[in-house]
Design a protein around this nucleic acid. Structure first.
Ligand code: MN
Ligand code: MN
Ligand code: MN
Ligand code: MN
Lengths: 220, 220
DNA sequence: AAGAATTTTTAGATTAATCTAAAAAAACAA
DNA sequence: TTGTTTTTTTAGATTAATCTAAAAATTCTT
């Protein structure tokens, strides 16, 4: 019904919509799909014909209920497969995204249901992202970026918002793993870099760019 | 490098080649790919340009060493995923083929290696088919069709050569599962149907068509 | 509120995989 | 060996997804 390519467009429109809470521009989609704006225009017309997106020329695009259902199903599969790769096959969290990009398009409801059960109905993927349930429901989480936390506060690291291998390997090296307790020791005003101490031991120095991509919750 | 479609052609040429030990005809490929002969001709020229097959117009086709390597890699993945689906996710053997047809095209050497290890380096898939090792080597097995066995002999059921859901469900119902011991009680000359007794208990009656698709080894 | 800059869409091609219909080659048969 | 049948290939279209270049619409800036 929906092709590999269409599913990728829907997933990307979902992500951009969730970030901005409004219509998504053709150029924004082109950037994430790694295609040209002209190709996106064509595809948006096609998805609109299939009633998967709301699209008026020059007005940006949003998902229809059905488009969102498809997008969430693809995201669910992506995250479940990532759990499988890390928890069962022993991959590191920085190695699984590209493989999951392929596995997310495997089409079988029974497979997803059985995989979910085999994994023990996980609620989060290896990067801390919530896994939509089989009805496409996903909890709204009060995550904050580490860059928004005040000096002196203690927080728990629960996720990352950047999934590149380079970033995740950097985190591994510095001891910044999910579940780590973090205390903000000092904020450097001029570049917003941080000195932090990690529960596992050492105090380290991180850039604002890094802090922006670490998701945390406050600890009492 | 090789597309989903190309991989399917190579896999089918491999299977037909193995059956006949000679060049494969355009029409034979068309039948298994569910396409027309004209489409096959086009694809054979393309695979030949890529050095994956030996092909001369009107002379049939065989795999090159590289084509065979790709075909065996796809077959290896197909069978490993089938083991996963049955042994880990609890699917029945009649439910896994179509899902494996999709999973066999996932492209990641590390994934295959880790899956193989996770499954305990299985040598056979749920239908008794041998799994090529990571070098593409597959044992040559002295399997016989149940239809070729003499009356009075005892054999062990080790595989099936037809994978349709309908056939496998019929086998389940009659108690014909891998590992079953079978004794040929009687052969009806006119239609080659058989009376057999199964180690698990009952004696049953099966057609020649069924017997042809059950793979066995003789028991002393 | 123009004019300039940016964004988006359309026009026209290209590539992969397929099809139908027709032509060509090979195989079979009298 | 010569006609007939079957198989295979070619010719010409079609569909999905993409591209570049040009046109059109929108947005930004004086
Ligand atoms: Mn991912
Ligand atoms: Mn993830
Ligand atoms: Mn199979
Ligand atoms: Mn099998």
């Amino acid at each position: 019904m929906t092709s590999f390519t269409e599913e990728n467009y829907l997933k990307i429109i979902y992500k951009l919509s969730a970030e901005t809470n409004s219509e998504v521009s053709t150029n924004a989609v082109a950037e994430l799909t790694q295609t040209k704006a002209a190709s996106v225009s064509d595809m948006l017309r096609k998805l609109s014909d299939k009633q998967l997106v709301n699209y008026q020329k020059y007005q940006g695009v949003t998902l229809t209920a059905e488009g969102e259902r498809v997008a969430l199903s693809v995201i669910r599969k992506h995250r479940l497969w990532e759990v499988f790769l890390v928890a069962k096959l022993g991959f590191n969290w920085d190695e699984v995204h590209d493989i999951a990009e392929q596995l997310e398009h495997i089409d079988s409801e029974e497979l997803v249901a059985k995989l979910d059960e085999f994994l023990g109905f996980p609620k989060f993927d290896p990067h801390g992202d919530p896994i939509p349930d089989h009805n496409g429901r996903m909890p709204v989480l009060g995550y904050q970026n580490l860059s928004e936390i005040e000096v002196g506060k203690n927080v728990l690291m629960v996720g990352v918002s950047e999934h590149s291998s380079a970033f995740l390997q950097y985190l591994d090296k510095t001891g910044l793993i999910l579940g780590a307790g973090i205390t903000i020791l000092e904020l450097n005003e001029f570049d917003k870099s941080l000195s932090i101490s990690i529960s596992s031991g050492n105090a380290i120095f991180i850039s604002h760019e890094v802090a922006k991509n670490i998701l945390v919750i406050e600890q009492k």
